[in-house]
Design a protein around this nucleic acid. Structure first.
Lengths: 177, 177
DNA sequence: TATTGTTATACTCTATAACTATA
DNA sequence: TATAGTTATAGAGTATAACAATA
């Protein structure tokens, strides 16, 4: 009978391959490959975080609060590249679920200090475990050297150069400019 | 007056930096960096393709049709990692705008052959120019060597290994498994 | 029974405009 | 005048379920 039609690719499969069709020159461009890689990685996170009914995006907000203590909405937006206006409802959800509270900012009465609750801090232990599991799977796919190299190249693309030097890796490829 | 509040970062800026806040360990993970890199690259494409009222996604569909002649919907979905069900309306738009036609598939009467129109082929000349301009900007940011290396690493992540070898680059980092 | 294309639907993410209360 | 948070809204993108025609 009709029923459930299309399903996602089996669990952690490599994503759709560009095999069936000639890939134009798409598989030679950063735009296409980054998009496909992000899709692949993102789906893995979504499937794993579904167990705790959380989106990878919300995880990154909580992780940021854990590492920074009290934050303002604008800080989080700037750090994650998300517009403030799109953060309000997500923080609403985190507040409703008891992971975050909005407190008065003592200095600026316009602002509100976002802080993790103890429940949120406990929750993060589980979230880090889920995150690390999938990240480890990706490291295994690439090998540790290529994983580090990929991180460094993405940092260079985003920030101009590596943020913190790990000087024990081949630097020759990284400081041409 | 109130007026326009939040705007996107100035044109082709590096994206939000993780400076203001301690980045947790996010900037050490593939999940975060790929997501940020994709966001950065995608915004550049969106801004440039806006001039022709096209989404990068639709561009990749057209490019695929150009390189492959007649395609079925399922082929395109498999190549781009998009569910068929989400392709219907996008192809509808391309048909309405005169870039694509749906023809009868001679072999399989369920299927429909998607083919570029001459107008679609002409349009692609302009689209490739727009695409190449932004891609060149990214190459400049990275340097050609690191650009090639990044492509290779993303291919390894997605497909297991490089699709086509360019044997004139340092291979040592690529074939550990 | 399975596959091709399709409609309907829902949820997430992103983006713009405009309001409020502070600064 | 500008900034922090907010609301409302619109558009992409992605997911599931179900159906008709065909294989």
């Amino acid at each position: 009978m009709g029923g459930e039609n299309e399903r996602l690719a089996a669990a952690d499969d490599p994503v759709a391959r560009v095999d069936a069709l000639r890939p134009a020159q798409l598989d030679r461009t950063l735009g296409f490959l980054i998009s496909m890689a992000r899709q692949f990685i993102h789906r893995g996170f979504v499937q794993r975080f579904a167990e705790v009914d959380l989106t990878p995006n919300l995880y990154s907000i909580l992780a940021l609060l854990e590492a920074n203590g009290a934050c303002r909405l604008s800080d989080i937006g700037a750090a994650l590249g998300i517009l403030q206006t799109n953060l309000v409802k997500r923080v609403d959800e985190l507040v409703e679920r008891g992971f975050v509270t909005r407190q008065a900012d003592p200095v600026d009465r316009r602002a509100k200090a976002l802080v993790l609750t103890p429940a949120g801090r406990d929750f993060l232990v589980r979230l880090h475990a889920i995150h690390d599991e999938w990240e480890a799977m990706l490291v295994q796919r690439l090998g540790t050297d290529d994983h580090q190299l990929l991180l460094a190249l993405l940092q260079k693309l985003l920030f101009g150069e590596r943020l913190d030097g790990e000087p024990d890796h081949p630097p020759a490829l990284l400081d041409e400019d």
